[in-house]
Nucleic acid binder design. Structure first.
Lengths: 207, 207
DNA sequence: TATTATGGTATACGTTTGTATAGTCGCAAT
DNA sequence: ATTGCGACTATACAAACGTATACCATAATA
């Protein structure tokens, strides 16, 4: 069964039970964390019984593997969509846009990754590792095609891409809740300070 | 029994059982998260039985409250230590240093706050709220003493302090594990790119 | 028609969880 | 000398957990 982008926007009704379970797990893991989410809760959210979850994913670890594989697929598919044309900067920008759009369509991915990334030691999955490898491959591909900046070392460039795309999203909730507490609920959203997250080549100066 | 700063650096032997339980909980929560840490595990780490944990803290929620209260105390004590003298910039720097030193002495605090702060919706505690209020009071005190910069609005300044002190620490593990994966374990640490986390007054330009 | 695979439910298992209760020990104050 | 209280252990309990097993329905296959 082929998963199209449009399907992920449809109602759950048209999804396989297996996909519904996976989506429910992703959403609940993002909101409450894996440890605080029981397989029965996931089953209820997907409208099935626990037995079916086990039937499709065998164990809770297996379910997490499916969730993380799905996240990598979402990134991969988003980047495939971005056109490879124009200047070096234009290509990089269109890829960033494609990823940003995917994340906007799938907010649970942000929440899930936030938990996985802030928990590198205790986390039992390999999602950050997979995404890092994926980003490194992207950098390598663009470089060999001659359409990527070469002023940084490639590892720094890869980390730069990841931090730019994810770092702000991770920290934003902290700023948001502080802003809500300090400025009150009826404050002008436009006055909220902007987060800046980036990496600098070591030894570099200036912005 | 009075708790002095020097005691927190001593071996556990000299600590009250109640303090040992609280410290063990903080350390385990930081490493594995609260959900993944049972009260029996905490009791074992502190060298006591579950019953004593209940005796001192009543419930697991009570234990978390004690842990979070202790963290606020650590911040509070660290800032009390910083001298209020010299230029405005010097005062701000000495406070930042005092907090940085406290965090270096208590690395588990960073891990605990990372989980609590990046997990604002699911989190059941109020630690971010407490620290935000504390930071806001600091800004207000320094301002009324005429020793704080006034070029920003105070809420932005408060958020700026928090983000500067905590933001980089939270994201650093992500950069570290990516760097370890991309550059290999024997790479020169000095080549690792530097994280930059800050906030800008909305509408502002420049670095 | 009989068979087998697939998607699904129902129920039961052993373990671990947070919490409750009862009791022991040491020690300070009456 | 006894009482009382705080620190502490031991054990027990109900609930929730992940997982295993048995069973049912439908539809494609032989």
């Amino acid at each position: 069964m082929k998963i199209t982008a449009r399907m992920s926007e449809q109602a759950d009704n048209d999804l396989t039970a297996k996909a519904r379970i996976r989506n429910a797990a992703l959403a609940l893991y993002a909101d409450y964390g894996e440890d605080a989410t029981s397989m029965r809760t996931i089953a209820d959210a997907a409208g099935v019984t626990v037995g079916l979850v086990v039937h499709h994913f065998r164990t809770k670890d297996g379910l997490r593997e499916a969730v993380e594989h799905h996240i990598v697929d979402l990134f991969s598919y988003a980047i495939e969509q971005a056109p490879v044309e124009g200047t070096t900067a234009a290509i990089a920008a269109s890829r960033d846009d494609a990823v940003a759009g995917m994340l906007a369509d799938n907010p649970a991915v942000i929440g899930y990754l936030r938990r996985a990334v802030l928990d590198p030691t205790g986390h039992r999955g390999r999602i950050l590792e997979m995404l890092t490898r994926f980003a490194a491959e992207q950098v390598a591909t663009l470089r060999s095609a001659g359409v990527a900046s070469m002023v940084q070392r490639d590892s720094s460039q890869t980390i730069g891409v990841m931090v730019r795309q994810l770092g702000q999203l991770f920290l934003q909730p902290m700023v948001d809740s502080m802003w809500a507490q300090l400025a009150g609920p009826d404050a002008d959203e436009d006055d909220k300070p902007n987060l800046v997250v980036k990496v600098q080549e070591s030894g570099a100066t200036g912005s």
